[in-house]
Design a protein around this nucleic acid. Structure first.
Lengths: 217, 217
DNA sequence: TGATAATTTGACCGGTTGGTAAACATTACA
DNA sequence: TGTAATGTTTACCAACCGGTCAAATTATCA
């Protein structure tokens, strides 16, 4: 047989799982760094440590690899938003969401850039995911937030733009990492960056910039 | 002479200025939509309405075009931050900066995406600009903000992360436009999006999410 | 073990890409 | 007007890219 391929076999061989794993890891590395068009199959094969035809034995096309990668990563990427709890304390929930998102920007910057690259260029490969599962999840959580504002538990605000603001501020530290580093300079290049960001963002979202304490004098 | 090129001639001919203008406009369109690597010279030539060799007569290489485009756009892109006035009212200055940045995201989304694409992929072509002029400008304005916090005019906060937060939240509406549209759905597809965002962001940065008025009941 | 299926590889292909060479056309200007 | 500089085009190239193919190698299991 010349075309068993992963898709046709009922059970995954040990070797299949291992190789597909290695390929997707390499694909994440390359796609996140160069975008879909900027990435080359040779590059991915090289990072995965196998020949190009061998790689194409497991994923027929570059698009198939990208699709498989998106499918695998999207779910875990949305986990923090799913954890948003309608029953919890509003301010604590938002604070916790910010913290989780920031941790993901720190620990999984490649995943963040994978989506950023895609969305930035018009989301040609993930339009359905955006309009489908993503929108539904956001709609659901926006309703939770709206209930909180109506109950007077947090300040009245547009829940969608609140979510956008949390996304953008946290993912900024993954997507625009080089810029953040360039501006902060060598001094703050360690992990302290994320702790400072966490402190700032928690305060921003909870208190805003209005003076909350009187100056010491 | 076979190599007069723009660089060699002392004075720019009328025709040179016109063509270079058209080329940079087309380059902005294509680079911002596909990134440096994703853009092709043929595409740019097509959008500019001229043949590829003709285009390469004015800019020797794809890189030269990109470089010229960056140089031209970066200055105006940083204008809002330059307008940040140390003598003004702190809260009013920040509010005004947010508004300007949001207007730029609305009116010049291509410029925003041009930089976003570049930075996202590690800023291989603008590293010097980031570490040089950008960092210096940010350092200067951060000092202004720090003075405000020390004087107790606004809440104590890290000025760098404040600037990052304003950048990310405002540019989000340009860079991640398709995602914003997908999540908001058809209903809010008009310009109202930006007015809502402006209202939300002003409130967020000034007041935070803490309840500032008692619920009506 | 032997045969069958699964995996891997080198050679290759057609299309695209950034860029060039040189002939041709147009403009500027003495 | 004539001519030299400037601008434009057609044809082309070498490198690269996604993907194929058939042969070779390795794993599976009766």
């Amino acid at each position: 047989m010349v075309l068993p391929r992963a898709a046709k076999t009922q059970r995954r061989t040990r070797i299949q799982e291992e190789k597909e794993e290695r390929i997707l890891e390499a694909a994440l590395e390359v796609f996140s760094a160069h975008g879909f068009r900027g990435a080359t199959v040779d590059q991915i094969a090289d990072v995965a440590g196998m020949s190009k035809p061998n790689l194409l034995y497991y994923f027929r096309t570059k698009e198939a690899m990208h699709r498989a990668l998106i499918d695998r990563v999207l779910d875990t990427w949305l986990d923090p938003l799913r954890a948003f709890d309608a029953e919890g304390n509003p301010v604590a929930e938002i604070r916790s969401y910010i913290r989780r998102k920031l941790e993901m920007a720190r620990d999984f910057p490649r995943e963040s850039r994978l989506f950023a690259n895609e969305v930035l260029q018009g989301a040609p490969h993930i339009e359905d995911e955006l309009k489908g599962p993503l929108k539904e999840l956001v709609d659901e959580k926006a309703e939770v937030i709206r209930a909180w504002t109506k109950a007077g538990k947090i300040a009245k605000c547009d829940p969608y733009h609140l979510i956008f603001a949390i996304w953008s501020t946290t993912q900024h530290y993954a997507d625009f990492d080089v810029q953040v580093r360039a501006v902060l300079g060598q001094g703050s290049s360690g992990e302290g960056r994320f702790e400072d960001a966490a402190r700032f963002l928690e305060r921003l979202f909870v208190d805003g910039l209005q003076v909350s304490e009187q100056p010491i004098s």
